[in-house]
Structures are given as structure tokens and as C-alpha cells.
């Protein structure tokens, strides 16, 4: 299985993991604000419904889906391909 030795998943560096992490953190902060926060707008009126709570939940769901996608179909990094590409010189524009 030598050809697989140089192949591994992109792991934390997958762009989907970044997106999931940021949206997940945003979601947690918003949900907590929705539960414990004041729900008041800058002009002092109560916001309709509880936007922090439902947007926070929506972001958490989105983050879970993104991360699920990244885990179900991981991006495979091929070190050999990488080395070959580098020998051909740096990509100029593409």
C-alpha cells in the first residue's frame, strides 16, 4: 500500500472546517446571548421574536452540516503530487 503512504486528509486545514468553526463559535455566542441577553435594539425597542436565539441555532445547524460534509467527503492531500508540482516550478497564476 505504498502509494497511500503519502496521502492523508487535509484535516483541520480543510476550508470547510474553517467555515464550520467560525459559524459554530458565532452560533454558540448568539444562542447564549439569546437566552441571557437583553434582546434590545440600539434605539431601545425590543427586537421582534428572539433573533439571537434563532440565528444562533441556524448557524449551529449550518456549522454541523459543513463539518459533516468535510468529514464524510474529506479532501485528500497527495504529497507525491505536491512534490511533482513543485518540481515543475511555482504555479504562475495557475
Amino acid at each position: 500500500m505504498s502509494e497511500h503512504d503519502n496521502r492523508h486528509t487535509a484535516g483541520a486545514f480543510d476550508v470547510r472546517t474553517f467555515i464550520a468553526a467560525l459559524m459554530g463559535v458565532f452560533g454558540v455566542v448568539l444562542v447564549l446571548t439569546g437566552i441571557f441577553g437583553g434582546n434590545e435594539t440600539t434605539i431601545g425597542t425590543k427586537a421582534d421574536g428572539n433573533p439571537n436565539l434563532w440565528v444562533g441555532i441556524a448557524l449551529l445547524v449550518f456549522a454541523a452540516v459543513m463539518q459533516g460534509w468535510a468529514m464524510a467527503r474529506p479532501t485528500i492531500v497527495d504529497e507525491e503530487q505536491l512534490a511533482r508540482d513543485e518540481q515543475e516550478g511555482p504555479p504562475a497564476g495557475h
Binding site: 448568539l30 441577553g37 434590545e40 434605539i43 425597542t45 427586537a47 444562533g56
Partner: peptide, 12 residues
């Protein structure tokens, strides 16, 4: 943004 969003969503 000023009229509709509470703190939290405001930061977002």
C-alpha cells in the same frame, strides 16, 4: 441594522 437588530446580531 440600528432599528432591527439586538446586541449580538448587531456584532455579527
Amino acid at each position: 441594522i440600528r432599528d432591527l437588530l439586538p446586541n449580538g446580531m448587531l456584532g455579527l
